[in-house]
């Protein structure tokens, strides 16, 4: 399986997943930290991929969804955005709704 297929599988099999630098417990970038905190505040479980531990994903994820930066949040197989969008959606209460929708379906 090539790396883009591997990324696709992660995105499609996890209702909520964040590709980030570090982990939610030990983030290694302020933007990744904030996005992961917003997801945690939604109160539902979510998957994470530490891109610093997987060079292949680190190098190819920007190409997967034509999005140049980390973190990247995917809900229900679709790119939601990076840190700024995730936070703005959270502040509007929309992130919680999105997460709840897929959590109910899961």
């Amino acid at each position: 399986m090539d790396v883009l297929q591997r990324i696709d599988q992660i995105v499609k099999t996890n209702p909520v997943v964040i590709f980030m630098k570090g982990t939610p417990q030990l983030p290694q970038c302020g933007f990744s930290m904030r996005a992961a905190q917003a997801l945690q505040s939604c109160g539902k479980p979510f998957a994470h991929v530490n891109v610093l531990m997987d060079q292949e994903i680190f190098q190819n994820l920007p190409q997967y969804a034509n999005w140049p930066t980390f973190p990247q949040v995917y809900i229900n197989g679709e790119l939601i955005g990076g840190c700024d969008i995730t936070l703005e959606l959270f502040q509007k209460g929309e992130l919680q709704k999105l997460v709840n929708t897929v959590a109910v379906n899961a």
Binding site: N66, I80, G81, I85
Partner: peptide, 13 residues
Amino acid sequence: LLARHRLVNQILA
């Protein structure tokens, strides 16, 4: 928002 950020990202690609 996603489309707005894509627009800026594309200008600064």
